[in-house]
Design a protein around this nucleic acid. Structure first.
Length: 807
RNA sequence: GCCGGGGUGGCGAAACUGGCAGUCGCGCCCGACUUAAAAUCGGGUGUCCCGCGAGGGGCGUGAGGGUUCGAGUCCCUCCCCCGGCACCA
């Protein structure tokens, strides 16, 4: 028998598939389709085991669905613009384009070497002008709709380095790099109005077949809360300031009022206040603080403004403070403070010696005055609340808001935690924004026919305060598309999440030069039937893509409202119980293992480690074990091919086992996504086959095993299929389990006494319940445990067990 | 704090619908082949107790309770681990 040589076998079949374009699929738009997609990689290095996992899952499903008669779209590409790729280039010390394209070549070669069934004719890279032309085009569509806009947003600025620094790069209010005190600055940034779609993004989660944990994360991220907006009048100004509250039941307990330091009113108050300097100093101090540090602050800080707000429910004047525990970008940036029923307000009241007034208490029971009482269900009632005293808290809240509404001082309101998506970056390696600024015409979109706006070459692409594109002066200077006068281009670039918010649509029609896609094509393939990827993209990318699709649907560009009908979230691959990552320095790549043990063993291994949606610990011994299994599989099947009789499949125990394995593997891959147990089932079949390779039904069992392992180990399966005298396994229909073979005429009856296993008896399948009980009683082992006691009851589970209850 | 996922042999895990706990694999032990080792192949392997042995019995799925003829699985209380969000009013 020939030795198993994975390299020769894998090269042979990969060449064959490439020649035959075996995994390319045409846009016939006919028949049952399945779009199977894994999240595309950042070409920031080489493949690691996480990639091995996610792409092998997709590959198994692709083969399975193809062989079940579906037209399967399974493309691949590279998320090659943006920070991940650019940072990799900066580390490598080369031009981002060169480094990125080198990484792509390497990864593409690895992917081909692993033998994934990818339609390479549809490959895309987000940094190619053919792609980003349409990213720009889509931006312009959103811009036309008013869904893309520019606004000032607070950023941290280092006056020494003359650069914006990320929140994560500020430590104790100082620049991480040079130690200078950072200051807050408002800078113009581009945003998408994703908040317009907050409710739709929330509602439509119900229609998706996603893991509950992932839906929960998105709900959490969107963060809907129901409450009321209530107007408080600043007494000295005569101006109404709205607050958002979820606790209208506590309005009578408001004892002070707080504005976020960034609230637009604060500067105006400072101008008129005798505490003006104090207020400005406080605002400057808090602005420089990292958001996380503000949140982590043990002591509440703030400053009295000298102004007062009037509580609309009782006309009471309460002092107005500025304090950084109130966030500027949630609700209205101002709150009514109810220290008796809110932890944060309570802490502030303690620190500033402000009154605490109890207005909600349990119907029965005592309240500890030393801590805020936050419960507010139907078991809580209002007190100190005028006409509302005695009402249950939810009812009281409703009545109070209704009364305010009647006076025009409040209304029921909904708030979301979700913020508009800020996506412009002062970096080089990203999609240019097709906008021109003209002194005469203002902000002018670049006309479609002038797309793409190319990414210019610059001398120094490293990040600095000014966008690197500003150096490309000839590129920046441009005639205004509207008036022809002197104008300049937008020099910021898009975040990579913009590129990845629509790539799955481009795969459907990747070479279209007239449009981003043809609608009938995307409508045929989409929504994606199975999307596979890591949980780390469960919020950002997967919310942004959902937003894009909803907008595109509203624009009539696509006929569906959700991109990912089903999502499978793969686990992490860990080494030493730590997620494999560059940062942890524990990355193991598949290249090495494919080289040493072959692609089939590496593919089987990653899916055999454990359930694919849970984290799994990588060990070198496990891939060796898989190499051993493949070798054993090779020997056993070859032996059958050489020695087992040909002819009709006989209905012996091997054939029965084969049919049972078909049923198990089909269910495991098709319904349960339990890839590990499907492999175990084929191993069992192989073990039985090895015991009797010359049996009359050995050939059928071997063919079945080869056919079932094909999605996991397509190369060795194809080679063995050929040795069994057949061809083109990748196109063969998936085997069907013969139900009649699954039904046996005897079965093993489990006999319990008082629920404890006492015996197993092989019995005929057609015995009646009485006969089963009689058989159970007849067992010697059972008799020993009956101990002469009376049988009070006999539980019979047909075709399974008899439980004799004695007492 | 809120939300989500977990806890089963020495290890990764299986048990899908309440019905034989531990499939499959790793590791380990014994044996075959070998001058020897590696590789490969065969057998064994939850744990404790009784028995020279064949065998028999008890215990066992994070802890405690409950429902049930029967619970890893369902219910209640609690502990621990991992992840997400978090001064979100």
């Amino acid at each position: 028998m020939e030795r198993y040589d994975p390299h020769a076998i894998e090269a042979k079949w990969q060449q064959r598939w490439q020649e035959e374009r075996a995994f390319e699929v045409a846009n016939d738009l006919e028949g049952e389709k399945s779009y199977v997609l894994e999240m595309l990689p950042y070409p920031s290095g080489t493949l690691h085991m996480g990639h091995m996992l996610v792409y092998t899952i997709g590959d198994v499903v692709t083969h399975f669905r193809r062989r079940n008669g579906m037209r399967v779209l399974h493309p691949q590409g590279f998320d090659s613009f943006g920070l991940p790729a650019e940072n990799a280039a900066l580390n490598a010390g080369g031009h981002p384009r060169e480094i990125t394209e080198r990484n792509i070549r390497h990864i593409r070669a690895s992917m081909r070497r692993i033998g994934w069934a990818i339609d390479w004719s549809r490959e895309l890279t987000t940094h190619s002008p053919e792609y980003y032309r349409w990213t720009q085009w889509l931006f312009l569509k959103l811009y036309e709709q008013g869904l893309a806009y520019r606004k000032g947003a607070p950023v941290k600025w280092c006056p020494n380095d003359q650069t914006v620094v990320a929140n994560e790069q500020v430590q104790d209010g100082r620049c991480e790099r040079c130690g200078a005190e950072v200051v807050a600055r408002t800078m113009e940034q581009w945003f998408f109005r994703i908040t317009d779609y907050a409710q739709a993004l929330l509602d439509d989660l119900e229609t998706l077949d996603w893991p509950e944990s992932i839906k929960a994360r998105q709900r959490n991220w969107i963060g809907r809360s129901d409450g009321a907006e209530v107007a408080f009048r600043i007494d000295e100004l005569g101006e109404d300031v709205p607050v958002f509250t979820t606790r209208a039941d506590t309005l009578f307990g408001a004892t002070f009022f707080v504005l976020a330091p960034e609230h637009e009113l604060v500067e105006r108050l400072a101008e008129r206040s005798k505490h003006g300097d104090e207020i400005r100093a406080y605002v400057a101090r808090t602005a420089a603080k990292k958001t996380a540090d503000r949140a982590a602050a043990e002591e509440k800080t703030g400053v009295f403004t000298g102004f007062h707000a009037v509580n609309p429910v009782n006309g009471e004047r309460i002092p107005v403070y500025v304090a950084d525990y109130v966030l500027t970008d949630y609700g209205t940036g101002a709150i009514m403070a109810v220290p008796a029923h809110d932890e944060r307000d309570f802490a502030f009241a303690r620190a500033f010696d402000l009154p605490v007034r109890q207005v909600v208490r349990p119907r029965d029971g005592e309240v500890d005055e030393g801590t805020p009482y936050v419960a507010h269900g139907d078991d809580e009632v209002l007190v100190n609340s005028g006409d509302y005293d005695g009402l249950a808290a939810p009812e009281g809240a409703r009545r109070i808001v209704e009364a305010l509404e009647a006076q025009g001082l409040g209304r029921f309101a909904v708030n979301y935690r979700l913020r508009d998506w800020g996506w412009s970056r002062q970096r080089y390696w990203g999609c240019p924004i097709p906008i021109v600024y003209c002194d005469a015409c203002g902000t002018v979109p670049v006309p479609d026919e002038d797309l793409p706006v190319p990414l210019p070459e610059v001398d120094d692409y490293r990040p600095k305060g000014e966008p690197p594109l500003a150096q490309a002066e000839d590129w920046v200077r441009v005639a205004c598309p509207r008036c022809g006068g002197p104008a300049s281009r937008e020099t910021e670039t898009m975040d990579t999440f913009v590129d990845s918010s629509w790539y799955f649509l481009r795969y459907c029609d990747p070479r279209n030069e007239e449009a981003p896609w043809r609608r009938e094509v995307v409508d045929y393939w989409n929504p994606i039937d199975l999307y596979i990827g890591g949980v780390d993209h469960a919020t950002m990318h997967m919310i942004y893509a959902r937003f894009f699709v909803k907008v595109l649907n509203d624009l009539g560009l696509v006929g569906f409202r959700e991109p990912f009908r089903r999502f499978f979230s793969n686990g992490w691959v860990t080494l030493g119980k730590t997620k494999m990552s560059k940062r942890a320095g524990n990355v193991v790549g598949p290249d090495d293992f494919v080289e040493r043990y072959g692609a089939d063993a590496a593919r089987l291994n990653i899916l055999f480690l454990g359930p694919a949606d849970q984290n799994m610990e990588w060990t070198e011994t496990s891939v060796q074990a898989m190499a051993r299994f493949v070798g054993r599989f090779w020997r056993v099947v070859n032996e059958v091919a050489e020695r087992a009789p040909r002819g009709e499949e006989a209905g012996g125990s091997l054939a029965r086992k084969a049919h049972a394995t078909i049923a198990k593997v089909t269910d495991d891959i098709g319904r349960r996504f339990a890839f590990n147990t499907a492999i175990a089932a084929v191993m069992e079949l192989t073990n039985e086959l090895a015991r009797d390779p010359e049996a009359a039904d050995a050939r059928f069992a071997a063919e079945t095993a080869v056919s079932l392992i094909q999605p996991y180990a397509p190369h060795v399966a194809e080679e063995l299929w050929e040795r069994l005298g057949h061809e083109r396994l990748w196109e063969q229909p998936w085997p069907q389990a013969d139900e009649s073979q699954l039904v046996r005429d005897t079965f093993q009856l489990v006999v319990q006494v008082n629920g404890k296993l006492r015996d197993r008896v092989e019995v005929a399948a057609d015995l009646s319940e009485d006969e089963l009980v009689a058989t159970a009683k007849a067992s010697e082992r059972v008799q020993a445990h009956l101990d002469g006691k009376e049988i009070r009851q006999a539980i019979v589970v047909p075709r399974k067990l008899v439980n004799l209850v004695v007492g």
